[in-house]
């Protein structure tokens, strides 16, 4: 909501107040610079260097980037994993977070609060993904193994988290289980705030079904909330690493589920190849940015007719 017209009418604020405003921004802004801006800038610069944190950095041009795509199969593997995971769990979680918010929107407030809690609980309690180890435990006592063996589907227990044909799928399911987070909450709030006048006007203009109402009224009036939700969703799927590291371990068999973030921290904080880790971080930044603007463009299509 812009209030620039209001602003122009009022006299400008005094110089002393301006400096007071600058002063109160200082703690946040300075830490924001040190822990957010500087890391991004530092990794851009260091991505062109060979740096092991002991000797001086040596400028090597784009060699780090060349190495990634030409000589590092592990990178290509973890990049593929990250994309696979994000492309399924990202939009999947986003759509789930909208559909469920939309579904519970028609209930009265107390019921809605309870349902909100039920759906939000896995995201709320953080690393409760621990629970799934009981179901997917790799020995014959694991519930799923025991069940499948007793029904004769399998004869040997499957080590779910280490088996490369299942572990990615299992992790995506667990991620979806936890995906009703900030995005879900902001969707609920956004749906509550679509004004009834809009719906009434829509009915007069000839909207006949709830699907039309969803497409032409609800979604367009929530566009900015949806974008916020999408940004939060991108941020969370691309930073997933603890889930794999806890349930599968790092590195996983054939790097089957390692993510870019896990790989970057391995290269950086365990092997001290800071130049290469920085170049990988730059690729991650670009990847996330590309997704952000891709989604922005996609959300702009909402509410348009098919013609």
């Amino acid at each position: 909501m812009s209030n620039s017209t209001l602003t122009k009418k009022k006299k400008n604020i005094s110089l002393s107040e301006k400096s007071a405003f600058m002063l109160i921004t200082f703690p946040f802004a300075s830490l924001f610079f040190v822990f957010n801006i500087l890391p991004v800038l530092a990794s851009i610069v260091l991505s062109f260097f060979d740096y092991d944190m002991v000797s001086n950095p040596i400028f090597i041009g784009v060699e780090n980037y060349a190495r990634m795509f030409a000589a590092d199969d592990t990178f290509l593997k973890v990049l593929g994993n990250t994309l696979k995971f994000s492309i399924v769990a990202g939009p999947g979680g986003f759509i789930l977070a909208f559909v469920l918010a939309w579904m519970i929107n028609e209930f009265s407030k107390p019921v809605r609060v309870v349902l909100t809690f039920i759906f939000y609980a896995p995201a709320l309690v953080g690393n409760a993904y621990f629970i799934w180890t009981v179901l997917f435990s790799g020995d014959s006592l694991g519930y799923l193994n025991n069940l499948l063996i007793s029904f004769g589907f399998i004869s040997e227990p499957i080590n779910w988290f280490q088996n490369t044909s299942y572990n990615m799928t299992i992790l995506i399911i667990i991620q979806l289980w936890m995906s009703m987070g900030v995005t879900f909450l902001s969707n609920i709030a956004g749906l509550q705030n679509v004004s009834d006048e809009m719906y009434e006007a829509g009915a007069i203009d000839g909207i006949k079904t709830r699907w039309h109402e969803l497409w032409y009224i609800t979604l367009p009036s929530m566009k900015s909330i949806l974008l916020f939700g999408a940004v939060m969703q991108i941020q969370s799927v691309f930073s997933v690493s603890g889930l794999m590291q806890t349930l599968v371990g790092y590195p996983s068999v054939n790097n089957s589920v390692d993510t870019l973030v896990s790989y970057i921290s391995d290269i950086g904080t365990a092997r001290y190849e800071m130049g290469y880790a920085s170049a990988l971080s730059v690729i991650l930044f670009l990847l996330v940015l590309a997704f952000r603007f891709g989604i922005g463009a996609f959300l702009n299509l909402i509410g348009k007719s098919d013609s």
Binding site: F35, L38, P39, S239, S265, T269, S278, L284, V288
Partner: peptide, 9 residues
């Protein structure tokens, strides 16, 4: 996502 550059800092 920022952990490695932050590690340097």
């Amino acid at each position: 996502t920022l952990s490695v550059p932050q590690y340097l800092i």
